[in-house]
Design a protein around this nucleic acid. Structure first.
Ligand code: ZN
Ligand code: ZN
Ligand code: ZN
Ligand code: ZN
Lengths: 144, 144
DNA sequence: GTAAGGTCTCTAGTAGCTATAGCTTCAAGA
DNA sequence: TCTTGAAGCTATAGCTACTAGAGACCTTAC
């Protein structure tokens, strides 16, 4: 049995985060010791490691919740899991596209700056007016 | 003079967002009409357009605050503005690197799924254990 | 005059944690 | 056995950048 601190160390997750996951019912309430401290077994560690890895891959907690309940039913078809993963891939691709456009504009404005006064600064100038931009970085709809 | 609604339409910013910017002192308090409604002039529109464009390019509000106070002093050197822009570029590059790693892993796990049961699903399997991953998507430290 | 729609303030909610305060419990050394 | 320091407990507030509502007030057009 692991205390919350050991569990956190084992899974690479901070202690307050574990308590937060319990609060939002992503982790089940664990046993308690005689002194009211949380005690975890292997299954909690597995579950937490799953959550951590999915978070590292950018899945939102709601998606992780769905993935976890799927993985509790091993005989079901995995189609739903694949849909979630594909959705996540789509979101990641959209963000990359958006960020690439931002990167291009930032590089352009930085390159064009002549290191003079603010009045002549290309960075300030471009920020003041999107028509100085080469790309339409506003279009890709993903939240940045 | 523009009411808040017209200003929002002119700058492409929602009305509650304008009030929020005023609250955090990113926009100055405007004049009021006899009936206590906000009235804006051209300078407010310029300022708001600047904020909107900088937000679209991913700058955080704190950086925008600094950029705005710089642009109020046109005779100063623009070095500080360039530092902010470069910092933003660095952040964007880091995020792109992170997201490219995520994208690669997501594509890998999706491609390897055989569309069977959850027990055999490669998506679930990879999420359970980072050692199935090809890349070290955890390393790049930028907040995703 | 009246009706619609814009505006006012204030509060609370979103995601995913993180930090603090003030307390109790546990484990190890003297 | 006693003590001390680390680790645990609950509860609350804060972070970014907004967004959504409630209930009241103002403005404009017909
Ligand atoms: Zn410059
Ligand atoms: Zn632009
Ligand atoms: Zn599958
Ligand atoms: Zn991995």
């Amino acid at each position: 049995m692991l205390t919350i601190g050991k569990l956190g160390k084992a899974a690479g997750v901070k202690v307050p985060t574990i308590r937060y996951y319990e609060q939002i019912e992503l982790l089940p309430e664990p046993e308690r010791s005689a002194g009211n401290q949380r005690l975890y077994g292997q299954s909690a560690l597995d579950r937490l490691a799953f959550i951590r890895h999915a978070r590292e891959l950018g899945f939102p907690l709601d998606a992780i919740r769905d993935l976890l309940s799927l993985s509790d039913e091993p005989d079901q078809s995995c189609a739903a899991a694949d849909v979630i993963a594909k959705k996540q891939l789509t979101a990641v691709k959209a963000r990359i596209a958006r960020l690439m456009a931002l990167k291009a504009e930032l590089e352009r404005m930085i390159a064009q700056c002549a290191q003079g006064t603010v009045a002549d600064c290309r960075v300030i100038e471009v920020l003041s007016d999107h028509s100085h931009c080469a790309q339409d970085h506003r279009t890709s709809g993903a939240a940045e």
